[in-house]
């Protein structure tokens, strides 16, 4: 592993990227007050909001131009996902974008891809390899009739008559059990190529979810910081006390690193996918931990109030884990990351 390579470390966003970030930031902030998030519980899907997200171009922007997209880069997509996470928007955008990109790469199912680009049909991805016909929990499958899955047979599109039944869960996500025997099945690709497509899609899902987790962490932090500025004890603001301030300083350190790591992973995945294929996993593991820590520290900063359902921090606390856990045990990612290092040294 070359640790002294001459590379730029320029994390500044260019004007277009800045416009994407600000455009979606404004959009999500205006369109998604916390009341909307609460109203969408327990399913975690707001059909109206979804239409508006589609109208923003979010479902098509990441597709190649031939597939009706704008060829937005993964850097653009992580910027959007961070803004989505900031307001914990109840829309299946991450799974949908990743599954649509996978569809486009695999080829076939052109009609579905067109409908997906328009947001008319929601597509999702089973993140675990299918073995022996075992069922698995799939993110957003409670609002998607079309599920992409990979098994020894290949990469398969499962089209169900209607989305599977929602299973209520801590993060209020549209989670559902996926039965690989269910629905109409079309094999889109087979062999090692199919597996590579699947692994890339899972990495993209982790990357975009990592970005959303950075957004969650940032909002959680802000709630804690605002509380710490105004809440008083012994005649001073609690935020003046190091026992309160230092954990918040730790949190902002974790978040700022996770944000750059997500962007770095996105940049490599876009421009040099073969150089550091482990980076999306690195970013996901770090972002998941940052979000877990941010949510807990912020909730705790708010004392008993931070433990109540009424407090907005509850929305972020429950989703910090509720969204990251969908990616499976980070231990598996860490083993991949270490294996990549062993291969490189």
């Amino acid at each position: 592993m070359e640790r002294f390579e001459l590379r730029r470390q320029d994390f500044r966003l260019d004007d277009d990227q800045q416009a994407v970030r600000e455009g979606f930031g404004d959009f999500f902030t205006k369109q998604v007050p916390s009341s909307l998030v609460r109203d969408a519980q327990p399913l975690g899907f707001d059909a109206d909001l979804w239409q508006r997200v589609v109208a923003m171009g979010a479902t098509s922007m990441g597709l190649p131009e031939e597939a009706g997209g704008d060829g937005a880069t993964l850097v653009d997509l992580v910027l959007v996902a961070e803004e989505l996470g900031r307001v914990v928007a109840p829309v299946p955008l991450v799974s949908h974008v990743v599954a649509s990109r996978l569809l486009a790469r695999a080829g076939g199912a052109g009609e579905l891809l067109a409908a997906a680009a328009e947001g008319e049909r929601v597509v999702t991805l089973a993140l675990q390899p299918g073995v022996g016909g075992n069922r698995q929990l799939v993110p957003d499958a409670a609002v998607a009739r079309d599920v992409l899955a990979w098994s020894a047979e290949g990469l398969t599109l499962h089209t169900l008559p209607e989305p599977a039944a929602h299973v209520p869960n801590q993060g209020s996500t549209p989670l559902a059990w996926f039965d690989p025997a269910a629905g109409e099945r079309t094999v889109l690709a087979a062999g090692p190529g199919a597996e590579a497509l699947f692994r890339t899609a899972v990495a993209e899902w982790k990357l975009l979810t990592g970005a959303a987790l950075v957004g969650i962490a940032e909002s959680a932090l802000q709630l804690g910081v605002e509380f710490a500025k105004s809440r008083r004890t012994l005649g001073v603001a609690i935020g003046a006390l190091q026992g309160v301030a230092f954990p918040l300083a730790d949190v902002v350190s974790e978040i700022s690193g996770a944000r750059n790591l997500v962007r770095k992973a996105a940049w490599y995945a876009e421009h040099e996918p073969a150089t550091r294929p482990d980076l999306p996993l690195v970013a996901f593991v770090h972002a998941a931990r940052a979000a877990t820590e941010a949510a807990w520290v912020s909730a705790h900063t708010q004392g008993g109030l931070g433990f109540t359902v009424e407090a907005d921090i509850s929305l972020f606390f429950l989703r910090a884990k509720g969204w990251s856990v969908l990616g499976g045990d980070p231990g598996a990612d860490r083993r991949h990351i270490a294996a990549a290092l062993l291969a490189a040294v």
């Binding site: 994390f11 790591l261 690195v282 770090h286 860490r334 270490a338």
Partner: peptide, 16 residues
């Protein structure tokens, strides 16, 4: 590997 992977994440995060 699991524990080593965690350290790789920490070092990567430290850099950025």
């Amino acid at each position: 590997l699991d524990r080593l992977g965690a350290l790789v994440v920490e070092a990567e995060a430290s850099r950025v």
